[in-house]
Amino acid sequence: MPLHDSGFRLPRERLEERIRNLLSSQNMCVLATVGPDGPLATPVRYYPLDFAVMFTAAPRSPKLRNIAADPRVSVGIFAPLVGLASSRGAQLFGEARVLPPEHPDREPYWAAFRWENEHAERGRSLAEPPRDTLVVIEANRIVYTEHWLRREGFAARQFWKRRGN
Rank of each mutant, 00 (worst) to 15 (best):
G89C: 05
V98C: 03
V73G: 03
A127T: 04
R97E: 15
A85K: 05
S125F: 03
P80F: 08
L84K: 08
Q91Y: 02
P71I: 10
W110P: 06
H103F: 06
A90D: 08
A120W: 01
S86R: 08
Q91K: 06
E121A: 15
N66A: 13
P130D: 13
L126A: 14
A79M: 10
S61E: 02
V98I: 15
A111S: 08
H119F: 07
R122N: 13
R60C: 00
R106L: 09
N66G: 10
E116V: 06
S125A: 15
D105R: 08
Y109T: 07
S61D: 05
S87C: 13
P129H: 12
P62F: 08
W110N: 05
A112H: 15
Y109W: 15
E121F: 10
V82A: 14
I67P: 03
A120R: 15
L92C: 00
L99H: 14
R65H: 13
I67R: 02
S125P: 00
D105C: 01
E128P: 01
G94R: 10
A112R: 05
Q91H: 02
E95D: 10
E128V: 11
V75R: 04
G94V: 09
A127W: 01
P59Y: 04
E128M: 06
V73W: 09
P59K: 07
G83M: 04
P100K: 00
G76P: 00
R106A: 08
A127Q: 01
V98E: 01
R97P: 04
A96T: 14
W110C: 00
R88F: 01
P129Y: 02
P101T: 15
A127F: 02
T133I: 03
Y109D: 06
P130L: 10
E102H: 12
Q91L: 15
E102K: 09
N117G: 05
L64Y: 12
I77V: 15
A111V: 11
P129E: 14
H103W: 07
G89L: 09
Q91P: 00
S87K: 05
K63C: 07
P130M: 01
S61C: 12
E107V: 03
R88L: 10
A120L: 15
P100R: 07
F113C: 00
L64G: 11
T133A: 03
R65G: 06
A85I: 11
E128Q: 13
R131Q: 13
F55S: 07
A69Y: 00
L92V: 03
A58D: 14
P80E: 14
P59T: 05
A127R: 11
V98Y: 01
A127M: 08
T56A: 07
P129T: 11
N117L: 13
R60P: 00
F113N: 02
P108Q: 06
R65I: 12
P62I: 10
V98M: 03
H103E: 09
Y109E: 04
A57Y: 01
Y109S: 04
E128H: 05
L126R: 14
S61H: 08
A90E: 09
